[in-house]
Nucleic acid binder design. Structure first.
Lengths: 213, 213
DNA sequence: GCTGCGCTGGACAGAGTGTCCAACACTTCG
DNA sequence: CGAAGTGTTGGACACTCTGTCCAGCGCAGC
């Protein structure tokens, strides 16, 4: 027998997906204009996205869901940047690392305010904090793996603890990049200098740490 | 002629100062119990401190002033820890740096939740953010000075940029310490391991960076 | 043209902030 | 003692924002 419920048209689903994407875009736009996430009211976000406040709550559980979605999209993009561990390849390892950091900086720059908003909400919301930590966990595991490899090959100090050293690199490095992007205007040359200074600190301090014999 | 306004008695001023200190203490206690600053209502803070909500607003401009005061007291304590730049002294520099970081970790541990609350409010309040940055500025200047000195003495790479390298150390290091304290239970042995891993990363990566000739 | 889905506007309860003020209590001084 | 000023309080208030709910409107599909 035929279903009594009328099937939802594909067009409707598309329209809804478009509206959600538009909403997230509006949030990023407002954040880029300097607003803090707390200052953004649902009314303002919804109206700018061409939705009523009621519809907003139909599409999103609450304001926090916006940040969770932005966290996922920002993190996945960042993780991609460091996909291929380059120092094994032909290029000079330090240069490769600096270039990778520069790409991450440029990625953050393309979405100014978004990372700051994530940090802001993570400050008082457990779910966002956990999402952020899960994203960092992936990085830490990857870096720890690389460090263990470098140790096995005798290219860095055997005294180094891969897991803790990886936390130092990921937590610290992310903060440096985030602060740099928040504090300074877009300037590719300065971005490159900071990226390479950070890379050098990590390279000589950890990836190729030469303990005195 | 005698002043018409009756002078405020010293006892009153003392009582008020005591009440303010008590209030700040209550806030730190509640934060240590796991509450986020946002969750803390003025009503709850005031009543626990034995004040009415009205009196709270007589003593503090607003909720944010609590955080500003806590920021000042936490920062001044941290800055003291690194007062005497030790590596010039007799002790091994790396060991000294690790011990200094350990003291900072222990300092943060003695006030669990406070740093997290500061970061939380800094996320949406400009004045708190600026207070935090001013505190870090002092550290950065100090570290940059030490690095320039190391360079002049030929003990670290001349390619290193003192100001940017100092930002990497201070921003990154503070984040590593904060995250470590927030994520783990009190464990002095683990604190020491993290402190010395962080110190080693900074030491070999920046203070004594040995670029290949 | 009927029917039902998607969306809207508006009302609502709840929580919290910061302001204001009248009233009470306490201290100090004449 | 009593007057007068100071410190503190409770309560009312205006405001903002969140998240829920629902009656109803319009449009698309049959």
């Amino acid at each position: 027998m035929a279903s009594t419920t009328r099937r939802t048209s594909a067009a409707t689903a598309d329209r809804r997906a478009a509206a959600e994407a538009r909403t997230l875009g509006v949030v990023e736009k407002l954040l880029a204009e300097g607003a803090s996430f707390t200052e953004l009211s649902v009314e303002r976000i919804a109206s700018q996205a061409g939705l009523s406040r009621s519809t907003f709550y139909l599409y999103f559980r609450d304001k926090t869901e916006l940040i969770l979605r932005l966290t996922a999209s920002l993190k996945s993009g960042t993780f991609e940047v460091g996909r291929d561990w380059g120092p094994d390849g032909p290029a000079d390892g330090l240069t490769w690392l600096g270039d990778a950091y520069l790409r991450i900086i440029r990625h953050y720059r393309s979405r100014p305010g978004t990372y700051a908003a994530i940090m802001e909400v993570a400050g008082y919301d457990r779910t966002v904090r956990e999402a952020l930590e899960a994203g960092q966990r992936r990085f830490i595991d990857r870096v720890a793996g690389h460090l263990a490899e470098e140790q096995r090959a005798g290219r860095t100090s055997p005294a180094l603890d891969p897991e803790r050293a990886a936390r130092v690199i990921v937590w610290g490095g992310e903060q440096v990049i985030a602060r740099h992007v928040m504090d300074t205007e877009d300037d590719p040359a300065e971005d490159a200098r900071v990226a390479h200074e950070l890379a050098a600190a990590h390279w000589y301090g950890t990836y190729r740490r030469l303990s005195p014999a």
